[in-house]
């Protein structure tokens, strides 16, 4: 099958070279590449960046965008931004994220709708086990509050967009340019070259120094875009670090087994001509 193999290799090469060109061609710009700490087979989330990004999400994004698949306790689970917290000068870890005082304090900032034991609707302070409260009671309310455009849920947004984190970051930073003449920017829309269709209903959100980072980092627009994207990358794939470290073990095991089986195979077949 050598003829076939060669032909296939050639065809594959053509497709590999041509496919990105075909994808990139057309209406909107491919996002800028950014070097993320979570890139690559050994990449990990930068806990500080995820913490800052969570602050940006809370103070800027959360007014319009929910993260409905996340619970507050997720912040303190293994791989999460508050997995390890400093309590009285000591670094502490908690097996149960419910016991994590930082997570509990974050939860208490939220007000959660509930029903008490005599059936009356009440509002109570949040607990780590609660979901993050959603900004709207329903989709219609979300649309009405935003000029007809429903702000998407951000729980898995990084996985739900081509180019993932790079796209989100570029989009957040992509408001600076003037719209070219052939793009008709109607009221309620903004020009953003990274958005498919190049028109986005979300106004630019990030402004220099609009928040004060808990860790004292300077809140430049790019810093905030990087951080909130980092947070969303974690939110979309919270077990990424466990996945990669288990992957390494599995790979080492499989390569070892492959070598042993190959030697065994050579041994078995050494007695027959083949």
């Amino acid at each position: 099958m050598k003829t076939v193999s060669r032909l296939l290799a050639a065809a594959a090469a053509v497709m590999l070279v041509a496919a990105p060109a075909a994808l990139g061609a057309g209406k909107y710009r491919s996002p800028e590449q950014h070097a993320w700490s979570f890139d690559g087979p050994f990449g990990e989330f930068d806990r500080q960046a995820v913490q800052r990004g969570f602050q940006v999400y809370q103070e800027v994004c959360a007014a319009c965008h929910g993260i409905k698949h996340l619970s507050i306790r997720h912040l303190g689970q293994p791989g999460g931004p508050f997995e390890e917290v400093e309590i009285n000068g000591q670094l502490m870890r908690y097996d149960n994220p419910n016991d994590n005082p930082v997570v509990a304090a974050i939860a208490a900032q939220y007000t959660v709708a509930d029903i008490d034991d005599i059936g009356e609707p009440i509002e109570r302070p949040g607990r780590p086990a609660d979901r993050f409260p959603y900004p709207y009671a329903n989709e219609a309310q979300g649309r009405a509050a935003n000029g007809g455009a429903y702000p998407p849920d951000l729980s898995v947004i990084v996985k739900a967009r081509h180019y993932g984190a790079n796209y989100i970051r570029s989009l957040l930073l992509g408001y600076d340019e003037e719209a070219p003449e052939d793009v008709d920017v109607r009221p309620g829309n903004y020009y953003n070259p990274y958005m498919p269709g190049m028109l986005i209903a979300m106004p630019p959100q990030l402004q220099e120094g609009m928040i004060e980072y808990a860790d004292g980092t300077e809140a430049t627009v790019e810093q905030m875009a990087n951080d909130v994207t980092h947070f969303l990358a974690w939110a979309a794939d919270p077990h990424m670090e466990a996945r990669k470290s288990m992957g390494m073990m599995v790979m080492i095991y499989l390569f070892g087994l492959a070598i042993l089986l190959y030697l065994s195979y050579r041994q078995v077949w050494s007695r027959v001509k083949h």
Binding site: M246, M248, V250, L254, L261, S264, Y265, V268, W269, V272
Partner: peptide
Amino acid sequence: YYTVKDGFAIVVFLIIFAGFVFY
């Protein structure tokens, strides 16, 4: 003869499989 040959091929296939699953 073929259990060991198939076994070896299966493990090589699983390496590709695991590459996708984990990375």
